[in-house]
Amino acid sequence: MSTTDLNDDAVIESTRRWLERAVIGLNLCPFAKSVYVKEQVRYVVSHATTPEALLEQLMDELQLLSDTSAEKIDTTLLIHPGVLTEFLDFNDFLDVADAALEDMELEGELQVASFHPEFQFADTDQNDISNYTNRAPYPILHLLREDSIARAVEAFPDAADIFEKNIETMEKLGHEGWDKLDVGPAR
């Protein structure tokens, strides 16, 4: 299916399924469930087809998140199925996203995390199961509030161990288990 065949509802539904089954279901992010249950996650499907258009939308969403109370929107998932579909291009764009935060004087208030169907940690094989901790059905820029992260880390005593626990979870699950979750991307 090409990105032109996708509608926003289908993209959001796939993203929600991934969030529910993988991120929350496998407890890859112990902080996600709270904001999800409170319906404080904003889902935005970008129709951008160029990095420049995505940057403009990213900056709009960063400003909106900054201007809105956490009770209404705690975090935003900017899903962009039509641009930065190659992981290395996406990875390079993260520097642009960080520069936008700095230019907008939002460093220390907001941050951008990343998920991608081809996510790959440095020095890993492309199909290494550890990469799947950050794999999503579509490229996603996750906009987070620094205050919310700080509160969540305070409430979760072993926050520094999350990465290692996630790798262990993925190794136990394996590729077959991941495929059974039906959250994409498939191998």
Results as ranks from 00 to 15, higher is better:
L84Q: 01
D8T: 14
A186I: 13
A160M: 14
V44Q: 01
E102S: 05
N134H: 08
D123K: 14
G184E: 06
W178S: 05
Q57M: 02
A97G: 03
C29L: 08
E52A: 05
K33V: 09
L88F: 12
Q120N: 07
E71D: 12
D74S: 11
R16L: 11
V44E: 02
V96Q: 00
D128H: 12
G82R: 07
L77V: 05
E154K: 13
F121P: 08
D74H: 07
L173M: 10
L173R: 11
R187V: 14
D8M: 12
I24V: 06
N166Y: 09
Y132M: 10
V44P: 00
L144T: 05
E168V: 15
R187T: 13
I24D: 01
E39R: 12
D182K: 12
P137E: 06
A70R: 09
T15N: 11
E13N: 15
F93T: 00
D8F: 11
D9H: 15
L143S: 06
V37N: 13
G108T: 04
S34N: 14
R145P: 09
L144R: 06
V35K: 05
P139N: 08
E61C: 06
K165G: 12
L110M: 03
P137M: 05
I73F: 07
T124D: 10
S69Y: 07
E154P: 04
T3G: 11
D74Q: 11
A10T: 15
D60N: 07
Q40T: 04
K33W: 08
I167G: 09
T75R: 04
Q40A: 05
L141N: 04
E86V: 09
D89N: 08
E171P: 07
L84E: 01
A160D: 15
E20K: 09
N134D: 05
P157V: 09
E61M: 05
T169G: 10
P30E: 08
V112M: 01
A10I: 14
D67I: 07
L143I: 10
V96G: 00
T68G: 01
A22W: 00
E56G: 01
D161T: 12
C29A: 10
L54P: 00
T76P: 07
E52V: 03
V37L: 12
V23C: 02
T85D: 03
Q111R: 03
A99P: 01
R16M: 13
P137G: 06
V112F: 00
T85E: 06
L26E: 02
H116E: 03
D182C: 06
L64F: 04
L173Y: 09
Q63V: 04
R145W: 10
R187G: 12
I12N: 10
L28Q: 10
Q63W: 04
L54Y: 04
D182R: 10
V41T: 02
T4Q: 15
T85H: 04
V37W: 13
E13S: 15
I12D: 09
A152V: 08
H116C: 02
L58R: 01
T133L: 03
Y132A: 10
K38Q: 10
P185T: 02
V41G: 03
Q120W: 02
T133F: 04
G108V: 06
K72D: 12
D179Y: 13
T76K: 04
M170S: 08
T49P: 03
